[in-house]
Design a protein around this nucleic acid. Sequence first.
DNA 1: GGCTTTCATGTAGACAGCCTACACAGCCCG
DNA 2: CGGGCTGTGTAGGCTGTCTACATGAAAGCC
Lengths: 106, 106
Amino acid sequence: MKADALRGHLDSLILAVVEKQPLHGYAIIEALSVRSGGELDLPTGTIYPALRRLEKAGYLDSSWSEVGGRKRRTYELSPAGRSALAAHRQEWRTFSQVVSGVLGEA
Amino acid sequence: MKADALRGHLDSLILAVVEKQPLHGYAIIEALSVRSGGELDLPTGTIYPALRRLEKAGYLDSSWSEVGGRKRRTYELSPAGRSALAAHRQEWRTFSQVVSGVLGEA
DNA sequence: GGCTTTCATGTAGACAGCCTACACAGCCCG
DNA sequence: CGGGCTGTGTAGGCTGTCTACATGAAAGCC
């Protein structure tokens, strides 16, 4: 999968993956890999800055915990993040219809 | 529509739009607008560099003509561009399935 | 006891692609 | 005769993803 195809969609994916349950960064990467059938394998250098960006934007809340001697920063969806996710879903629907329509052979 | 949502997909759209008939830059912008139901309205500063990029990559061939005193540079799909388009279509199919799958509510 | 792998977080800098803003020019319409 | 449409193009900026690097503790293996 091309690197920059994700541009502008990664945020949606992250928000979607923490929707049902809060997860820490490493687990988010794994969850995305599983949910995409192995297509997505995001490097840590991509996901951690993205998480910070989303928290700064008010879409995620984070809290530290320690499991088995390892520190985890767990992120969960804020109310603002929840509505942002809904908006992103709508945008994705439009976007994918537009691209499929232009490409033809949808 | 978000600006950078197109990232990495614009090339596919351009190739698709000149597939059936050669078009010049300005007409490509209009064709994309029509085909997308008005969702896409790409600025010239986006499309012209993209066309040059695609020609340099060997996916488009261009030729100059003059219509009503105005010079037009018409682009048409090369054989390499045709197979690139096919590959892009396949990639789009995978990509859109992955995103839809992760977002849920597919 | 040492070595590698896995888990876990994070920063720095490079790169690419789309954007805004600008520039030029001829035609047409009011 | 001014503004809008057609038509092509460049310069510079922004931003998000990437690669590469840095740190550290636990677990498993030989």
